[in-house]
Design a binder for these strands. Sequence first.
DNA 1: CGAGAATAATAAGTACGACGTTTACGTCAC
DNA 2: GTGACGTAAACGTCGTACTTATTATTCTCG
Lengths: 233, 233
Amino acid sequence: MTTQSQGLHTHVLETLGLEISSGQCPPGSVLRTDELARRFDVSRTVIREVVRVLESMHLVESRRRVGVTVRPAATWNVYDPQVIRWRLAGADRPRQLRSLTVLRSAIEPVAASLAARHATAEQCAELTERALGMVATSRGQQLEGYLEHDIAFHRVVLNASGNEMFARLGDVVAEVLAGRTHHQVMFEDPDPAAVTLHVRLAEAVREGDPEAAERITKEIAVGALHELDVLAP
Amino acid sequence: MTTQSQGLHTHVLETLGLEISSGQCPPGSVLRTDELARRFDVSRTVIREVVRVLESMHLVESRRRVGVTVRPAATWNVYDPQVIRWRLAGADRPRQLRSLTVLRSAIEPVAASLAARHATAEQCAELTERALGMVATSRGQQLEGYLEHDIAFHRVVLNASGNEMFARLGDVVAEVLAGRTHHQVMFEDPDPAAVTLHVRLAEAVREGDPEAAERITKEIAVGALHELDVLAP
DNA sequence: CGAGAATAATAAGTACGACGTTTACGTCAC
DNA sequence: GTGACGTAAACGTCGTACTTATTATTCTCG
């Protein structure tokens, strides 16, 4: 159902990554390469490549004579979009969603402020377009369309900041927004206040007002955090 | 000299990663696995494992019948500490250092504010200890000692924030600080004002004053940014 | 002469078996 | 009890053979 015909490697990686980051294999537990090879019915070659990738994400550690041991969660590369996706699909999605939203609340106001200074005319245009798209899809259960515009909107802001580290957080934000829409039961339409704030943010960026952009983005973040508090304990 | 007896895999990965992220292999250029195997005089197995890791960092893309192509820098996982290290060792270290410092200036004030709320007594104690350590090593060319305390200080703040995403930025901050000390010519002792601010930040956290902690951390960040402007064009 | 289909060539993907190397762990002597 | 020592278990590396997807070429037919 997930990723099948795309290669054995991908399939094994996805399965193992999910199992580990969901806590199914607790830290300290050991996996043996040829056990895994038997379990997935693939050669040890494939398993070794997967283990090397998991090792590069600091999810596991491979030592001679002992095996592949799962590392404690505190060492994981939680900025790796793949790890984020695995964790959002796992058990403690709420906690994860909260961490990521707090991260957003720190980054995006600064990014918006920078965007108000550096955004190109093209970026301003897309921003406005996306904000209007959000308005258009904010009523009548068009959640998927709304999500698409929302993701694109925040991606443009991050890109327009001109800071590469911010720009690369676009994927993270996309995962968060998608996770919120898909996993959290969203029976209702988006908060109208949030929609308005996005429109105003597009304006602030277009008019080159960093302070306003920062302030409005903070409000958006507060709204997102509040939404989490309401919907999740 | 670098990483040698730690395994062929590590050596090849380090070399290739550095070459790619330093722009030596421009985006779009293709590498062939058995060419690489000949070049490094290792088996194709080792090369394949390395390629899989580089692929997971989005540095390269491997396609059948075409080879391993280097991806554009915009897709790289720039939050991977290994990638950060490679890029800081490469040509555009100044640009990279600036991006990372801006990132810090967004994250750390919020983290400090949270730390002032959540820090344990133990964390407060270590914070104070590290601040005193910075004072003690701030004069007389004890740059290495100062660096150690500085890294530990910021790591404690990030950990004490209670947010896992912030906590995991400790490695990034460590790389930035180490890069600043080692690569940038630091003939002089650290800025006394910065040292004082660290002491005051430790106090603010201990006294549970989020606003002060946030404000002081912002000042530290401004100082770091200013330092970059002075030392690098 | 051109468009599309059959075919060949290429490089990665996978498998398997062998051997090397490190290292935890048990054994034995003292 | 403590130390040296040997052993076996696991990963690390290698070479080779085979499979598969994809591109490039060639061939055929209109």
